[in-house]
């Protein structure tokens, strides 16, 4: 006869524990870590570039970890801007996990009191389930992807503290239904701030950075 054993353990408990340790060691050094999520082509790298320019102009330091299935196109683009970027190629894995971050951190120069942006794999499903040591998640959606994303992928919006809506200059051309999108975002994630960005002109980036700075203060309080 079999014996029933009550377990009730989170299946990703090992990842959660590693992520917690990463977060503790980074935040003890005053590093603010943002996990940037979004589908392929949403504008994650453009957002990070726009923020990086402003962060450096303000005298702060930052580093970027780029997650991709394969290729280092984004990392090279960031390095051309003089940004300290490190590439993780997951070789097909659909998300970054805490062990991957743990492995690259010693190879990356992350100054005390600096910013760390981690660009996750382009995917609105899997990355939502894995904490990787971040202070918060930021989900990026382009108007070209359509307003239905919060309805189709509510989980990733629910886990995110803010949603950056990119390519807002294309709203009319794409027939973007903003009211429908906003209602979906409010349902999936009542707490999430909606932050528009025009990646071409950089319009909106100042406000996003301001929002991030105040989120950093809130989380440190």
């Amino acid at each position: 006869m079999g014996i029933d054993i009550v377990v009730k353990r989170a299946i990703y408990e090992e990842n959660d524990a590693r992520a917690k340790a990463i977060h503790e060691s980074l935040s003890a050094r005053g590093v603010f870590t943002v996990n940037v999520l979004g589908g392929p082509g949403a504008g994650k790298t453009s957002l990070i570039s726009a923020l990086a320019r402003r962060i450096r102009a303000s005298g702060d330091q930052l580093a970027v970890i780029e997650g991709d299935l394969a290729s280092d196109i984004d990392t090279r683009a960031l390095r051309e801007l003089g940004i300290d970027a490190y590439q993780i190629e997951t070789g097909g894995d659909c998300h970054l996990n805490a062990a991957m971050i743990e492995a690259v951190l010693p190879r990356l120069r992350v100054e005390d009191g600096s910013w760390l942006f981690i660009e996750n794999i382009g995917n609105l499903v899997c990355p939502a389930e894995f904490v990787i040591g971040e202070d918060l998640k930021l989900v990026v959606v382009g108007v070209s992807e359509g307003g239905d994303k919060p309805y189709k992928y509510p989980f990733i919006f629910n886990k995110s503290a803010a949603c950056v809506l990119t390519k807002v200059d294309l709203k009319a051309a794409m027939g973007f239904d903003e009211a429908f999108f906003q209602a979906g975002l409010a349902a999936a994630s009542p707490q999430a701030a909606l932050l528009p960005l025009n990646g071409r002109t950089g319009e909106g980036a100042d406000r996003i950075l301001e929002w991030l700075r105040s989120a950093r203060e809130r989380l440190r309080a």
Binding site: Y151, A187, P190
Partner: peptide, 30 residues
């Protein structure tokens, strides 16, 4: 389906957290 609307009043529903769990509840051993 893909709707967030309340079936009683049609108002906007929001996620409660129920539906995003993932854990090993129990096992049977010999």
């Amino acid at each position: 389906g893909s709707s967030f609307a309340c079936p009683s009043c049609g108002g906007p529903g929001e996620l409660t957290g129920a539906g995003d769990e993932f854990y090993l509840d129990s096992i049977e051993i010999e």
